[in-house]
Amino acid sequence: MSEQPQVFSNRWADAAAPGDRDASHDQCDCLPRSRRAPARPVGFHSERQDTTAPGWLRLLDLVEEAAADGREVFQPLTELTAQERRQVVTLPPTVAKLTAVKHLGLYGSNLVRLPPEVGAMTSLEEFTPYTSYRLHWFPYELTRCRGLRRSTVSTRAVYGNFKYRPPFPALSAGPGGATGLDLGDLDPRVSGATAIRTCSVCDRGFDGAGLRQVWISGRVGADVLPLLVNACSAACVAALPAPAGGYVPAPHTGGPGLVQPDAC
């Protein structure tokens, strides 16, 4: 008697959005895909969110609905068409209202960045941006979600991952501070965001203080992620915790000259 084939459940069945994946994503070749690939400088994605796009407007409505009904699971992309998902490259700052959400699902997104306001989602326990291959880094503010224990991230797509150590973008606003910047209108290709309003560490406004940007590799949920810190002072940089073991052992400014531990 022949054995019955084993059937595996699809754990992403309720997270995957409908429609053609190619129609919902832009291609990304920012990072090499193996440790044998030649090293080359990398940079942030330059896309700005089109705030008139139907997908963005629908997302704004979904955030308001979730905030109003106090839902604990928020998977907004499952309610967008493939074309609408392609129009969304970040989340709105209004996600700060989602203080009841325990699971944020962003499976298969076209995101290139997350806003620091995700750190206000203080009930968050699970974070799943799996197969979001254009999401190479995360805001340090995500560490404010103290209850976050479970995560599923496509770690081969992130800067400095332990599998083949792709480089980090060089940060021009280093620990010495950069003054004279219009923090309300930034070039995302240079700064990683179009605006920076508060310090990632102390949460205060900059009030004329110079912007200091550093990278740190820290554990978020089940993963060690590259976290971008926007600090208002040298004291805030000094207050950062020690990076995760096996990664660059101190906050740094990235760039092709950065020495990383060997890939695993």
Rank of each mutant, 00 (worst) to 15 (best):
F168H: 08
D203G: 04
R40I: 03
D20R: 08
W56T: 03
Q83S: 14
G105H: 03
A15I: 10
L148F: 01
L104S: 00
T78Q: 11
Y130G: 02
A66C: 09
A178M: 14
Q6H: 15
R150I: 13
R189A: 15
N230L: 11
Q75C: 14
R165A: 03
V118S: 04
C30E: 14
N161T: 11
T78G: 10
L258Y: 06
L227F: 02
A244R: 05
G119M: 00
T81L: 00
T99D: 11
A17S: 08
H136N: 09
L124A: 08
Q4H: 15
R48N: 08
T122E: 11
R165L: 06
E141M: 06
F138C: 05
H252P: 04
L77C: 04
L104M: 00
L80D: 03
L60K: 12
S200E: 05
A13Q: 15
A100H: 12
Y133T: 14
A238V: 07
D185P: 00
G255Y: 06
P129F: 05
T99Q: 10
E47C: 13
K102L: 06
P115G: 13
D26R: 13
T152R: 14
C30R: 15
R189F: 03
V259G: 00
H136K: 10
A39L: 12
S233E: 02
C202R: 11
R33L: 14
S46H: 10
P38V: 10
H45I: 09
H136S: 10
R85Y: 02
L240K: 00
L80Q: 01
L227W: 02
G218A: 14
T99L: 09
P256T: 12
W137K: 07
A82W: 05
L111Y: 05
A222V: 11
D223T: 10
L62P: 07
H136I: 10
P5Y: 03
T99K: 15
V214Q: 04
T152E: 14
R156V: 13
W56G: 09
P249L: 13
Y133A: 14
G245K: 07
C28E: 07
P166G: 07
T152Y: 12
P5V: 12
D182Y: 04
F127H: 04
V248E: 02
E65N: 00
C202S: 09
A66Q: 04
G246F: 03
G105T: 11
G205I: 09
F138G: 05
